Computed example of a mutant assay.
Amino acid sequence: MGKLLYGATMSLDGFIAGPNDDMSWLTDFFGPDPVADELVANVGSCLIGARTFWGNDPNAGTDQEGPFGGAWKGPQFVLTHRPHPEPVEDVTFVGDLATAIAESRAAAGDGYACVIGADVARQCLEAGELDEVLVFIAPILLGDGVRLFSHPGGADYRLERPRVHETPHATSLWYRVKK
């Protein structure tokens, strides 16, 4: 069974998307990154939130569209109460978190089931299912948008000391979630 990993690129001030879910800022920070390459090589499936799946892919309509700038293809599980009316290649629409986690872990095999989307990542963390967090911190301040993690009223989830890697495009922090 795959490990559940939340992966995201974040602005220095904590946003993974700008105002109105704008993701276009990310394109300035794409570039060679051995940590991203390592992750992509080990992803077996993706568990994606509906807002992210239906959202603003900065690479829409290009060969870089999709998870990891189009560098990864495989089974995707979208957590949603409104499935797409038409079949979508490699995508399974799932209506509940437990099933989405189980199916994405099983599809990942020995690799990662990569969680994409802040809300679904929060739900996985709250359910005690999230194993790791990988954050690429981009050198930009957005000032508003979708936070990496938000829990009204606060929450206290402990992470182990990260593995750190720097490139000209981002600094990555790879954590294990303490259980």
Rank of each mutant, 00 (worst) to 15 (best):
M1E: 12
G2T: 08
K3C: 01
K3N: 02
L4Q: 05
L5S: 01
T9H: 12
S11F: 08
S11K: 04
L12C: 06
G14M: 07
I16H: 08
I16A: 06
G18K: 09
N20G: 05
N20D: 15
D21K: 07
L26Q: 07
T27S: 10
T27R: 15
F29A: 10
F29R: 07
F29P: 09
G31I: 07
V35D: 10
V35S: 03
D37Q: 15
V40A: 02
V40K: 08
N42L: 12
N42D: 14
G44A: 09
L47F: 11
I48V: 15
G49Q: 06
G49N: 06
A50Q: 10
R51M: 10
T52R: 05
F53R: 09
N56F: 06
D57S: 04
D57F: 13
D57W: 13
P58T: 04
N59L: 13
G61N: 02
D63F: 12
D63W: 08
E65F: 13
P67M: 13
F68M: 13
G69N: 15
A71F: 09
W72L: 14
W72D: 06
K73C: 03
K73F: 03
G74R: 05
Q76S: 14
F77R: 07
T80S: 12
H81K: 15
P83E: 10
P85I: 09
P87F: 12
E89Y: 01
D90C: 02
V94S: 02
G95Y: 04
D96Y: 13
L97R: 09
L97N: 04
T99P: 00
T99H: 00
A100P: 00
I101P: 00
E103D: 14
S104M: 11
A106F: 01
G109I: 11
G111H: 05
Y112A: 10
A113H: 05
C114Q: 10
G117W: 12
G117A: 06
A121R: 09
R122Q: 07
R122T: 11
Q123G: 00
G128K: 05
E129W: 03
E129Q: 15
E129M: 14
E132N: 05
V133M: 14
V133L: 15
L134F: 11
V135L: 15
L142D: 03
G145N: 03
G145T: 03
G145V: 03
G145C: 02
L148G: 01
F149S: 08
S150L: 08
H151L: 05
P152E: 12
P152G: 06
G153D: 06
A155S: 15
D156H: 14
L159Y: 06
E160H: 10
E160W: 02
R161W: 07
R161F: 08
P162G: 04
P162K: 05
H165E: 13
E166T: 12
P168F: 02
T171K: 08
T171V: 15
S172Y: 09
Y175T: 05
R176P: 02
R176H: 15
V177E: 05
K179T: 11
K179H: 15
